[in-house]
Design a binder for these strands. Structure first.
Lengths: 403, 403
DNA sequence: GGATTTAGTATGGGAAAGCAACAAACGCAA
DNA sequence: TTGCGTTTGTTGCTTTCCCATACTAAATCC
C-alpha cells in the first residue's frame, strides 16, 4: 500500500499541475500561474525552473503591451520530442507521430488482417513503428514514448492486452514485445479510454472535468472521464456502454456479447449496413448499388457516407435512424453522469455529421431537462483517428504527470 | 481558483487518511498505521497526537500476546459526540441519532404530508430535530452536526434543495433554516448520494472504492461511488439512473419525468402495485384483498410484502417481475461501471429478499461475463433507513475530512 | 525622466515529513 | 531472575518544500 502524501508527492503534484496548465493554456507567465494556482510567486519560479531544466517547457518571448514589466511567457517546449501512437482496428493498423501538443508530423494507415493473424500483425506493426522512429530521427527529434490503443480490455500496469473479442486476441504482452524491439517506453490503453484522454489533452474537452467519449465503430465503447480523470472501474473494464439492454424483443440482432437487445446493435456500423440492406431489398431508388459496382467495393460506412453526400435518401435515412438509436442511449448516459460534454468519435464518426442532428434531437426528447441543458454534444475533431491520437495522448499524459 | 497543494493541505490529507483508516479498521496501532500508509512512525505519532487532541480518536488499551512491546490501540473516540440525521420522504419524515461509528442511539419515523405542505413539514421536522438534540443532551453528548437527505437535486455548497419533483419543492434553504433554529452545522445531500456515503462509512461497502447505491422507492436513484469518492457530475445531478430509456413502446407508463419507457417505471414501487392491480382484476386467488380489508390499508409495498410472507403467488410473482426489470437495468450499469459492488436500499428494499434472486439471475444473463463476475449484489443492511443513516454519514464524512 | 505598475528573484523562516537513535515494554529462555 | 530479542513509540535533528517579504527589473504613463 502506498497512499499517503509526503513532501515529494507534494512537489510532484504541483509540478504536474503547472505543467498541465502550461500544456493546456499556453502561453502563460509565472505571474499568471501564481494567480491560477494560489501558489506563491517564488514557488512558481522554482517549479518553472525545474520544468525548464527537465526540458518540458521553455520561455518563449515577452508579453509587451500592457502596463508594468512585461511577462516572460512559458509554453511547452516544441523541441522536447515526438511521441508515436498506434491503433489496432479490426482490419487496419493506424499510426501517427506528433509533438507533445498533438500536432501531427507523420501518419500512416494500413489495411491489415488484425483479427486474422496475430503474429503477422505484430510484425507489420513493428515495421510501422520503426518507420515512425526513423522519421523522427531524421527530423532530429527524440521519441519520448510509444502508445498503443486496442479494442478490448487492457492491463495498463503490465501494458498487455487481456482480451479483445473483436480481434480474437487474448493475453498479448504488447509493452514487453514493443519495448524490447524499439527500446521505447510503451503504454497500452483501451481505444475508447485512449480517445477520451486524447480529447482531454488535445481535442474538444481540454478544460472539461466530466465528459464521455463515445467510440463508435464495430461496437460502441465509452471512455468515461469523471472528476478530472479517467474512470476505469474495479478491473479496468468500465466503459462498456454499448451493452446496456435497451430492448429485448427476441427478433433483434444477436450482439457479439451473446445477448439480444444491446444498445450498440441498434447504433453501430453494422446496424447501418443492415438498414441499408433491408431498404435495398424492397426499394431500388438508391445510388448505393451503383457506387458499389463502380468502386468494386463492399457495403461499408465510407461508401454509405458517399451516397449520403450525393443526397441518397436511403443513406440519409439510415444514418438518421441510427442517430436516433444513438441518441436514446446517450440520453440515458446523460441522466446517469450529468456530463459537461459528450464527444463522439471513432470509425463510424466519418458519418457523424449525418447522425448528429438525430442524436441531438433524440437526446433532447429523452434526457431530463435540467441535466441535458448542461451537456453539449459534439464530434471529435479527430474523427476516425481519435484512438491513434489517444494512444499518443496516453504517453503525453504520463510525461505531464512528472512521476 | 484554488487547486494547488501546500504544506497545510498535505497535513490535512494525511490527518484525514489516518482518521479514515482508524474509523474503518479500528483498532489499529501506530505501527500498523505506519505500515499501511508508508508514513514514518514519527509522522504517525504526530498525526495521532493531533487527532487525540481534537477528540476524534482515543487510545483504548494494549494489544498483548505477541512478541515484542505491546501496541497501544487506537480507535474512534466513542465519546466524541452524536450526529443527527433526517430524511424527507414523499409521505414521511425519518430521523435518527448515532455516534460517529453509526451506532443508532435514537430514532423516529413519522408520517407527514411532505409533498403537501412545505411550511408545516419543516416545522414538524424542526420539532423532531430538537427532540433528538434534547435526547443527546440528556445522554451528555454534544451534537456534532445535522445531516438532511432529500429526494431531488441539491446544492451542497449552499445546503439547499434545488428541486424535488416528487415533493413539489423548489429552492428550500435547508441549511439556513435549520442552522438558524438549532445552531448546528447542517449538511444537505440527495437521498441516494447520502445512502451511498452511508454504505461506504457504516455499511456493506466499507473498503469498496467503486460501487453503486441503488435507492429504490417512488423512483430509482443512484449514488455513484467511484474511485473512492462520490461522483456528482457537472452540476451535482449525476445518478439519475432510473430514467434510461430501456423500452419505448407507446403502451408503457408515463414516467413522472414526462417520458415513456424509463427503466424505473418497470421496477419502482408503483410498477409493483400496478402489477398486483392488474392481476387482481383477472384472478382473485390472493390474500391481498383480504389483508387490505383487515388492516383497512391501501395497496402498498409493506402490505404486498406481508402477502409474500404468507406465500401469496401474486405478490411473489410481482416482486419477481420487478426484480427482473431491476436486474436488466443493473446489468447495463455493471457494464458501464465495472463496479465492485451494487447495494440496493431505500423504501422498496423492504421487499428486497423477494426481488434479489430475480435481480441476480437477470444480471447474470445480461451483464458481460468478465465484468459481472467482479460485482457482488447485496441489500443494504440499513434497508429502508439507508437515507437517514446516509444523512448522518454525510456529517461524519465531513468530520473525517478534518478540514 | 520620474512615477507607477507589474514581473520575477533572493533570502530567511516555518511547517511537515523523514531519519536514526533510543527508550519502553513485553515474551522467552537460560 | 536476569538478560536477550523483538516490537512499539518517542525524541531530536535534518531535509524538503512552500511562504512572506523585500528587492530588482523592465516596461508604460504622464
Amino acid at each position: 500500500m502506498k497512499i499517503a502524501a509526503d513532501q515529494t508527492s507534494l512537489r510532484t503534484f504541483n509540478l504536474s499541475l503547472v505543467a498541465r496548465l502550461i500544456h493546456s493554456q499556453a502561453p502563460l507567465s509565472r505571474a499568471q500561474l501564481a494567480a491560477m494556482t494560489n501558489l506563491n510567486k517564488s514557488t512558481i519560479s522554482s517549479l518553472a525552473d525545474e520544468l525548464i531544466e527537465r526540458g518540458l517547457i521553455c520561455e518563449t518571448g515577452n508579453n509587451f503591451g500592457g502596463t508594468g514589466r512585461p511577462a516572460i511567457l512559458l509554453e511547452v517546449n516544441p523541441n522536447a520530442g515526438f511521441v508515436v501512437g498506434v491503433e489496432f482496428g479490426v482490419d487496419f493498423i493506424a499510426a501517427a507521430t506528433t509533438d507533445i501538443l498533438g500536432n501531427v508530423v507523420w501518419r500512416k494507415h494500413e489495411a491489415a488482417r488484425v483479427a486474422g493473424d496475430q503474429e503477422q500483425t505484430i510484425a507489420q506493426t513493428l515495421e510501422i513503428v520503426k518507420e515512425a522512429v526513423a522519421e523522427s530521427r531524421r527530423k532530429k527529434r527524440k521519441v519520448l514514448g510509444l502508445g498503443i490503443s486496442t479494442p478490448g480490455t487492457v492491463d495498463i500496469q503490465k501494458g498487455s492486452l487481456v482480451f479483445a473479442p473483436n480481434l480474437h486476441w487474448r493475453d498479448v504482452p504488447f509493452a514487453q514485445i514493443f519495448s524490447e524491439q524499439t527500446k521505447l517506453k510503451v503504454f497500452v490503453e483501451n481505444d475508447a479510454n485512449a480517445a477520451a484522454i486524447g480529447e482531454r489533452l488535445f481535442g474538444s474537452a481540454r478544460r472539461v472535468k466530466d465528459f464521455l467519449f463515445v467510440f463508435a465503430g464495430v461496437g460502441i465503447g465509452g471512455g468515461l472521464f469523471l472528476d478530472g480523470k479517467l474512470y476505469r472501474g474495479k478491473n479496468g473494464y468500465a466503459g462498456e456502454i454499448g451493452h446496456s439492454p435497451i430492448m429485448s424483443e427476441p427478433s433483434q440482432n444477436l450482439c457479439h456479447c451473446g445477448n439480444r437487445g444491446c444498445w450498440e446493435t441498434y447504433a453501430n456500423q453494422y446496424s447501418i449496413i443492415q438498414r441499408i440492406q433491408a431498404r435495398l431489398e424492397v426499394k431500388r431508388a438508391s445510388v448505393i448499388p451503383q457506387l458499389m459496382a463502380e468502386q468494386n467495393a463492399a457495403l461499408d460506412i465510407p461508401l454509405i457516407k458517399q451516397a449520403a453526400d450525393l443526397g441518397d435518401r436511403e443513406a440519409l435515412d439510415s444514418f438518421h435512424e441510427a442517430g436516433q438509436a444513438m441518441g436514446q442511449g446517450l440520453a440515458g448516459l446523460i441522466n446517469i453522469f450529468n456530463p459537461e460534454k459528450i464527444v463522439i468519435g471513432g470509425p463510424l464518426s466519418v458519418a457523424g455529421e449525418y447522425m448528429l442532428p438525430a442524436i441531438k434531437k433524440t437526446i433532447s426528447q429523452y434526457a431530463m431537462p435540467g441535466i441535458k441543458a448542461q451537456a453539449t454534444i459534439n464530434l471529435s475533431p479527430f474523427g476516425a483517428d481519435a484512438a491513434v491520437i489517444g494512444a499518443i495522448a496516453v504517453v503525453v499524459d504520463d510525461l505531464l504527470a512528472l512521476k
